[in-house]
Design a protein around this nucleic acid. Structure first.
Lengths: 232, 232
DNA sequence: CCGGCCTGTCACAGCCCTGTAACAATCCGC
DNA sequence: GCGGATTGTTACAGGGCTGTGACAGGCCGG
């Protein structure tokens, strides 16, 4: 699978600014998607989850703030990074934005360089999943910051995909995930990868975890896989 | 995966493309239904509501767009997922599609894999895991999310069918179900399985529950089985 | 350019699950 | 207690699902 440009959904009602943003984003190596209203944005997001949302706060109809709240309430879009676009650096806007958990904001007029830089920063921050928090279950320890995994103190070497897979499972222990769901977690919504490929990654992950692998990751026949936390 | 293939209604006037779609859908584990026009589609939908609609925008007579709007206006079909099929990724088509709230769209020519992937994604999105809550009766605890069952703290291993059977019974304790009813609960309405097979699954479930099995699931002679909740 | 790593797919073997049949055990009315 | 009906138990064939090893292609660094 080719490394595709991150999809950035622009929610902006003024056509002129939209055009400007599209050019800037293309130039910066992003794939722009467009929505002129909150409603269009919702549809577009339902269609395909973008990597980042570039959101104008001042929209006709449903405001950008309301949209952001709505997205934060939905499981699927809860962690979607949002960059606010505000006309002025008003204290009120900033406070509101931070309340709903916007990841960053830019102030009009903004320079293309600044915009691209902030987008990259947000993506970089999100890339190692949920911040750099160390997760530990049983004898297995995963450190996103160091990109390292240890089993009972023994350092283990995992490939990128196996690492991400383990990270996802450790964030949701004792829960069964279908192959489809795991594919979503690894490659996003619209990957054309066969489900059976997950089997192979699970196997590689089990091997990578050494003796712990077999007991830690359980197969649930007909459903998928789950990571079992050790019982008390 | 549910054992019944999701029904996909294909609305497409070109016979050649219809055939191609039918093959692709069968291959992908779906059950295709066909309509050559918007009118046929309406009839087919009235007859039996499909899981997804695969809708060509360019149709003779009533256009696909008009059909989509009509479906969105009707209470019964408002939430029916629609995937548009467009000849080209024309901006106008896309905007129109998003306006009526299409869930996704594919562009001709499309790859079978892509189509199947998008169908699955849409279905997954609509039914975000039918998991639900933990049920607990007496010493028996059933966790759908983890797909795990414990008896007095002891983890028990049940096959898929036994698990589903137990789940159904725990949701309706102290009530007798005929073998027919239990078959419906397990395999859906139209299964050709002999009733006696239920006996075997009840036995397997009793065995799977260990010492609790015999007392928990009671035989009601001439009627069927019931799960008895502990007496006060 | 080369070599190594990662990715995604396939084929095949093996196991589990499924559904059925046959037989044993139990229950009920008489 | 007897006989028929109902249920419990076991064994088994077939199919489906998963584990596993191998392999081609892509990407990247040397």
């Amino acid at each position: 699978m080719s490394h595709t440009a991150p999809r950035v959904l622009v929610v902006e009602d003024e056509a002129a600014i939209r055009e400007l943003l599209v050019l800037t984003l293309r130039q910066g190596g992003f794939e722009p998607a467009l929505a002129a209203s909150a409603e269009e944005a919702v549809n577009e997001i339902r269609r395909e989850l973008p990597a980042v949302l570039l959101l104008d706060l001042m929209l006709p109809g449903t405001s950008g703030l309301a949209l952001a709240k709505r997205l934060r309430a939905d499981e699927r879009t809860r962690t979607l990074p949002i960059i606010m676009v505000t006309a002025r650096a008003e204290e009120q806007d900033r406070v509101q934005g931070l309340e709903i958990g916007a990841d960053d904001y830019v102030v009009k007029p903004f320079s293309p360089k600044e915009l691209v830089a902030r987008l990259r920063a947000v993506l970089r921050r999100r890339a190692p999943h949920h911040s750099g928090e160390v997760v530990e279950i049983g004898a297995v320890r995963l450190d996103p910051g160091a990109h390292s995994v240890t089993c009972g103190g023994q350092p283990r070497n995992l490939g990128p995909t196996e690492f991400t897979l383990l990270q996802f499972l450790m964030h949701h222990p004792n829960r069964v995930f279908s192959r489809d769901q795991l594919l979503d977690a690894l490659r996003g919504d619209h990957s054309f990868i066969g489900e059976r490929t997950i089997d192979v990654y699970v196997r590689r992950l089990r091997l990578g975890l050494g003796p712990y692998g077999e007991t830690l990751i359980e197969t649930v026949r007909g459903l998928g896989y789950k990571l079992v936390a050790a019982k008390a």
